[in-house]
Design a protein around this nucleic acid. Sequence first.
DNA 1: ACCGGTTCCGAAAGCGTTCCCGATAGATCA
DNA 2: TGATCTATCGGGAACGCTTTCGGAACCGGT
Lengths: 391, 391
Amino acid sequence: MIKCVKCNEVDAIAKAGIVRGKQRYHCEHCDYYFTLPLVDAAAEKTPTRKHQTTIIDIARTLQVSKSTVSRALRGHADINPQTRQAILELAKELDYQPNLLAYGLAKNVSLTIGIIVPEFINSFFPYVIIGAQEIANPRGYHILICQSNESHAIEIENTKVLMASRVDGILASLTGETPDVEHFRKFEKAGIPVVYFNRVCDNVNASKVIVDDYEGAFKGVEHLIENGCSKIAHIAGPPNLMISKNRLQGYVNALKKHNLTVDESLIVRTNLTTKSATDCARHLFSMADRPDAVFCLNDPAAISAMLVAKELKIKIPDDVAFVGFSDEPAAALMEPGLTTLAQPTNEIGKTAIGLLFDQMNASRETFEHVTKILQTKLIVRKSSLHGVTKI
Amino acid sequence: MIKCVKCNEVDAIAKAGIVRGKQRYHCEHCDYYFTLPLVDAAAEKTPTRKHQTTIIDIARTLQVSKSTVSRALRGHADINPQTRQAILELAKELDYQPNLLAYGLAKNVSLTIGIIVPEFINSFFPYVIIGAQEIANPRGYHILICQSNESHAIEIENTKVLMASRVDGILASLTGETPDVEHFRKFEKAGIPVVYFNRVCDNVNASKVIVDDYEGAFKGVEHLIENGCSKIAHIAGPPNLMISKNRLQGYVNALKKHNLTVDESLIVRTNLTTKSATDCARHLFSMADRPDAVFCLNDPAAISAMLVAKELKIKIPDDVAFVGFSDEPAAALMEPGLTTLAQPTNEIGKTAIGLLFDQMNASRETFEHVTKILQTKLIVRKSSLHGVTKI
DNA sequence: ACCGGTTCCGAAAGCGTTCCCGATAGATCA
DNA sequence: TGATCTATCGGGAACGCTTTCGGAACCGGT
């Protein structure tokens, strides 16, 4: 029980910070400040964390300087092979793991790559991340995954975290809300390279890895037309993303090529949430003159739409055919299987982090941003075979 | 062009390390070592990374000491409100982000939690991770995800990385290969808490978060029996994992309760890969007296098995009924839908990291490990309704 | 015997924080 | 009018590592 040294009050004592290792109190009764030693400091703060072996521990037991230990561990020249051997052996015996925090502080690196994705529930981003890890891990880098949850605000928060973590480079795929990449400017200023993949804005001066969305969409829609669909709707994505624009353009041009009219009322936009995609589908299927096919921005949207169709007892593909984008594993499991455009997910991850490493190693002046465009592949399943059963 | 200072050779010059800021060369022609200053050091090493604002920058422009800046930023007492105000404003203006490496080094923490999962392609682990993040992020912690890829060797490697990163705590779900948790001992020695979830070994002295696997399996198998199945096979998991044992036991006891014989030949083991699960299914369906139901360790295995059944034109659920475990989103999309036992994934993540934080804040002596057992829920879909269409 | 060169190593600065201590000026009290 | 307190701040060590620099010991050649 703490008593006020002035008025002996015990109930109106509030803590007022810790100063010079002593607890400062404030008696709200007589408005008097006073300090008392932290007798139970050990009980309050429990430094349960123990010491982990450091370079200095090794140096001491081997009677050498820490410089020498560092040299041995880092494989530098300028060291006697026997000394090195002894140090390496002791390090192994003690299971020494260098403190990456200290290493990073000294070298001004962190050996981590930040990666910002909108979500990782669907398989697309996990596969990309795995591809990136397969390149990064052997090089001694690890990956800090941030999830923006399709929220621009969280994405901004993520950039701050990655900035504070002093990541050496960033892979980013934007949310459907992200209007610009202002919040990434700080990385540019700090000389930290950013490579965008999959979800990119236009007018961004950075390296990018995308797939040929235009051509993929074109192939997908043309495939629907060839299967006898003539009234093809499109569930498009948010207008800020290039994938939305390019896939929409592919859709439009495929229609035009085959002399089908482009009906604006058949183009609806999802904000990439399940609910939004479901709403889009409901809207399309409630139209008086229902479309006979839907080309969807991505597989999750297509799956949501197919579920709506099933619920409404609309036959797939006889009444409405579907084509998605990405070849999620679930696309193959649906009944009927969802026709979709496969993306080389693993290669996207590898290519993106490859570009990132290129930029990290390049000198700022000579480096030129590049955009790599990978190819999609049409995977035909039953969902799109509109004419087959009809004929 | 580098010339040998002895023989003037230019083509046989090899670099031999950098010593005292000078490049050391070796002429392989006359076997002579020599050093030359690094005239183009700037061009070779491109320190493209720029300076990021530090506490010292703020201190200098405001003519105060770095201690004062630190105090202001950390919200300590012992500082003039006006001084604090000025510092906070300048920090915001400069978009100051504290260097977490330096912070961690000074405080002997890293503000990161390591999480080791066998994979994150299926949705189970991503959902758990998201649950963990929802607790960790608001507390200022971020999460370093390591993927063991169902490999014990990689899992060991992961523990080293997390050790080097000086994570403050660990969430782990073991691989199907992991025989023991020896490689986690070092965390215990270092006073870094580990909480296991989902995939745990027995004889581990640590906090754990699991679901009631026994009861879930029991419910699932009993459900099959109630639907008229009498020859129920089980695709079990690796014997090292508790989930395998408990789900197997639930399967066995459900059979016993209903006076069904436990046929060892109907119990096959998957190593948790798709291929292995597929092989298991093929084996079961090639038996002379084919089972009329399969209870599978988890949904990915169940889905693989269902695909084999479909390929063999075995009708689901009329010929063979299925029950899985986990309620993967794909389970609902299959045709017929996969009956399964839903796990509270988000809650698992939240509970696990909650236990972790408890242990991080507790004093070593008083802390007691706890095991939290969460409940499963049977989600009935068509895959298990064996008797319904038969009758 | 001297000298240039090589080999190996230790000392020390620095990375950006935190935090403990001591210092100072002003306020308050007896 | 000292003496004690208070409010505020600066100095500097420490965290574990890298890296530069200088120096001692030793080598072979003249």
